[in-house]
């Protein structure tokens, strides 16, 4: 059985088939990229997995558990974290508290304990902080710890979003266009980090990406979508040479 599996996943908005009977599987420890032209249904698949949309039909399995009916916030508790295409950070909070929210799924303290800030809460906070510091070190975010998000440049925010997802110690991470809006250097950094995610932290990565050079550098396998349907699946080179994919991109 695969680590993560989508079976016949469909999402219809009225007559528009944003995602149409898509099936794929992600193996543990691999980096799988989803590519395709604009409007191919890539982000919709992510939104289906993180339960922002409810699928019209089809099922999603994670670690042999059916998660199609899970509540959106429970998806994170299962160990699936994500980033967003247009950055969804907590603008008026510091980087540190953004990252600590990433730890939310590990918090065990009760409301009354927090009101009194019992020693157990304090101890927990320190554990969370230590984990957050490890992520900060991993992604070189030390200079920004106490800065407010609203004052930070786009490139840094993108990294912070990745960091927040990592703070939840996910088993599977969904990256929605990690390189969009980044310059060449920042994209390079990002590609190293994504490889490190897999090699050092052992996180499985599912990623939507437009930048083919990034896809080629990091992906183990690639899925190409168009009009909500799977065109091709395989190694980056195979998929790029697939006639349907070439046709979809060049409009032939």
């Amino acid at each position: 059985m695969s680590y993560f599996r989508a079976e016949n996943l469909s999402l219809h908005f009225g007559g528009l088939k944003a995602v149409d009977a898509v099936s794929f599987a992600v193996e543990k420890g691999e980096i799988l990229s989803i590519i395709g032209p604009n409007g191919a249904g890539k982000s919709s698949i992510f939104n289906l997995i993180s339960r922002i949309y409810r699928p019209t039909s089809g099922r999603i399995f994670f670690e042999d558990q059916d998660i199609t009916e899970e509540a959106p916030y429970d998806i994170a508790k299962l160990g699936i974290a994500r980033t967003f295409q247009n950055i969804e950070l907590f603008e008026n909070a510091t980087v540190l508290s953004n990252l600590l929210v990433g730890r939310h799924r590990h918090s065990t303290t009760q409301l009354w304990q927090e009101l009194l800030f019992l020693p157990s809460v304090r101890a927990n906070e320190k554990v969370h902080r230590r984990r957050v510091e490890q992520v900060i070190e991993f992604l070189d975010l030390e200079p920004y710890r106490d800065k407010l998000i609203s004052g930070l440049p786009y490139g840094v925010r993108k990294v912070i979003e990745l960091a927040r997802a990592l703070c939840s110690e996910p088993k599977l991470i969904l990256l929605d266009e990690p390189s969009s809006g980044l310059n060449v250097e920042e994209t390079d950094d990002m590609s190293f980090w994504i490889r490190d995610l897999k090699n050092e932290l052992g996180v499985t990565v599912l990623m939507v990406e437009h930048d083919m050079s990034l896809v080629n550098r990091v992906s183990d396998r690639v899925i190409a979508l168009n009009y909500g349907r799977v065109l091709a699946m395989g190694s980056p080179a195979e998929v790029q040479q697939h006639p349907d994919v070439v046709a979809a991109y060049l409009g032939a």
């Binding site: 993180s50 922002i52 959106p72 916030y73 429970d74 998806i75 994170a76 508790k77 974290a81 994500r82 967003f84 969804e88 950070l89 907590f90 603008e91 008026n92 909070a93 508290s97 929210v101 990433g102 939310h104 799924r105 927040r164 939840s168």
Partner: peptide
């Protein structure tokens, strides 16, 4: 605070 600033992100972080 997370809910105040972005409900979507809060939800995806398990809140």
């Amino acid at each position: 605070v997370a809910i105040r600033d972005s409900e979507t992100a809060a939800r995806s972080m398990g809140v």
